[in-house]
Design a protein around this nucleic acid. Structure first.
Lengths: 215, 215
DNA sequence: CACATTTGTAGGAATTTCCTACAACAGATT
DNA sequence: AATCTGTTGTAGGAAATTCCTACAAATGTG
């Protein structure tokens, strides 16, 4: 099976159900993610890796029963090909990061980073590559995304705003005097240019972008 | 505007960006949720409620700068019609719950509850009704959902499993010797019977249900 | 046995997704 | 000024998905 269409076998260790649920839900919207298991405790994770056979493990740094880093190190010694993404409570210092990388952890994402960072990182490390950051200022759409938005044509921005306001496609078409197919084409192009896949991404971006410091 | 199609004006106060993002993303998949603002701190929330005019505020109990309950009480005194859903770190005791309800908080959802509880609660309290729980055992699909699953016909369960395994609709149709339209009809009925709206809900349920204690 | 409900199956219409196409426009180059 | 290239505005085709409806056969109930 080629690299391109191989599923990402994911195991997730997050203590709080609400957080784990909402993260899992979002990741499972991606069709090439295969959830092979989940735990709230480190010890359960260690017990289940053998049968679950994940390629990527997402694990919190601060678990209830254990230090996530310790669990991660144990997991790596048992499964050297496993790629681990550590979720830290705070942005990590350079010295701390060096320790993690030395342990074999492939990525660290802080809980203060946007979800897009975690998703991007996830697909980045599934091939075993190493990723570290956050380099974007939290709570602000990245400059690249803002640039991409400003690069949209006037008509595209007009349609983006209406779509983000949940205006029905038929109503947008009527107001702009174009066909529904045209509005769909615009939506298609907007999502491609901004790198979005789903409507909530656009809604959140437009909300945050127009409010400046609203987040 | 009738109650039925009124949008739910939502403001969310959650300190950690990753958690807030994934929760917001999921809530915004619902077309009748209108996000009017978000903050990571209680003080920002109090400053923005006047202009944001939310109907429902979701706020964490433990914020970085303040006690969520204090912020919630302040918010309520400024905006008596606001419905507040408090996210607690731990399941709350009956005595603690009484305090919250006395403060005018409409619902408390613990971080150890499934996301469906929060979503259900959200739509429950938007009309001002009071909701408290969790009554379901965490990390286990509720008994009602399991009962609903067992009430599916054999064919429905067969199709549910294949869909949850991300088998393409065309392949399911070919394997079962029926048309694609038939498979879509089955999917439609399965989602209605189980109360699901999107594929990740089914995937997570099937994964957890078949694994028993896997979560 | 009669009746009601469920199951298995599938079509119609509308919407959405993915892709392609083309004329007009705008900017860059010669 | 002419030509070339890329972008914009617009929209169709085909396939997939959603929402809804329909019907014969099977099953369950009284």
């Amino acid at each position: 099976m080629s690299q391109g269409n191989r599923k990402l076998r994911l195991y997730v260790t997050i203590g709080q159900r609400l957080f784990r649920d909402s993260l899992l839900f979002q990741l499972l919207l991606h069709s090439d993610i295969d959830l092979v298991g989940e735990s709230e405790s480190g010890i359960d994770t260690l017990n289940r890796l053998e049968s679950a056979k994940p390629g990527v493990l997402i694990i919190e740094e601060n678990l209830l029963d254990n230090d996530g880093l310790t669990i991660a190190e144990n997991a790596l010694s048992m499964h050297p090909t496993l790629s681990i993404l550590l979720i830290s409570d705070t942005p990590v210092s350079a010295s701390r990061l060096a320790i993690y990388l030395e342990s074999g952890i492939k990525a660290v994402v802080s809980k203060h980073q946007p979800i897009q960072d975690l998703v991007k990182t996830l697909f980045y490390i599934r091939n075993g590559q190493v990723y570290v950051g956050a380099w974007n200022k939290p709570d602000t759409p990245s400059q690249g995304l803002i640039n991409a938005y400003h690069a949209l044509s006037g008509r595209e921005r007009e349609v983006a705003e209406m779509i983000a306001n949940r205006t029905p496609i038929k109503e947008i078409a009527a107001q702009l005097g174009v066909s529904c197919k045209t509005v769909h084409s615009y939506k298609d192009r907007i999502f491609i240019k901004l790198g979005f896949e789903r409507l909530p991404e656009l809604i959140l971006f437009m909300k945050r972008h127009h409010n400046g410091a609203a987040a």
